[in-house]
Nucleic acid binder design. Sequence first.
DNA 1: CTATATTAGTACGTGGCACAAACCAATCCG
DNA 2: CGGATTGGTTTGTGCCACGTACTAATATAG
Lengths: 155, 155
Amino acid sequence: MSSRDETLGLVDALAQLSFLVQNALAEIAADYDLSLIQTRLLGVLRDREPTMNELGRHLDLDKSSITGLISRAQRRGLVVRTVSDIDRRVARVSITDDGRNLVEQVAELFAVRIGNLLADLADDERQDLARLASRIVGADMRRNGFEPGTEAVSD
Amino acid sequence: MSSRDETLGLVDALAQLSFLVQNALAEIAADYDLSLIQTRLLGVLRDREPTMNELGRHLDLDKSSITGLISRAQRRGLVVRTVSDIDRRVARVSITDDGRNLVEQVAELFAVRIGNLLADLADDERQDLARLASRIVGADMRRNGFEPGTEAVSD
DNA sequence: CTATATTAGTACGTGGCACAAACCAATCCG
DNA sequence: CGGATTGGTTTGTGCCACGTACTAATATAG
């Protein structure tokens, strides 16, 4: 309980940090007229071409939510639906060049923004942070049978 | 680049961690039929009795958004509006006992959940994390003239 | 090989959330 | 007093998420 102790409780600090990071991403995305979920969608699609169903699992959304999400993204030309030849029920979603460009830009700006956020940290502190965060994320994935579900946008 | 290197890039790790934390909060809140923003609202009101305007600044929302947010919360009895006596334009918002109980429960569960998330960390690692996160949050507040705007729910 | 499940996705209706623009009161101030 | 400013609400738009019902395609049982 020192007088100039800036240390919040762990829980509080983590919560606030998470708001900071999410807000950063949301703001940048908003500059490109993307919502957080659209951005996440494009992030997932960068290295995948999932069916609607799989997408639902990745993003942890009901399939009825996916329909709308994809429709809006498709209307904007960020994404396309392709009906599978072997099972004509399934629709595979893939990102367009426009979509890819967009998400790439957002990812880049996001990285910069995070960099600014961490401007005060020394290199070894940054490393500590990366290591700790990775550990937490990794442990969580392992616990939950690593359903991704949380792909970020960053590189 | 060791073979079993689980370390994501800093940016990625931070992004994913923030999703983890936010999802945890959102899930818990949802169990009480609270959205993230309602939860944040109640969190802010725990130690404040702001006007609609101030609230808008705290939560970084347009005033027209605040109206609806408060109306819904008030309809649920979590919050009350009181017209100021000295300036009959301003409405001061305060949390009700019900609201307080609710947010207290959410905060408690959230703390537990974060605890689980960090189960793998040693005590000194937890301290490191708390310190680093606090530093980042603090630096950011200082940069932006510490508009809070990000109050967490936690204790 | 039909008849009945099951599965993938869509349609529709509901409600929360966020915004912008227009608006109404109350207060301020010249 | 009368025009500006300020605090909040209203209204209309659009996104997002859900649950329920529905359609079409495939799988499975008999």
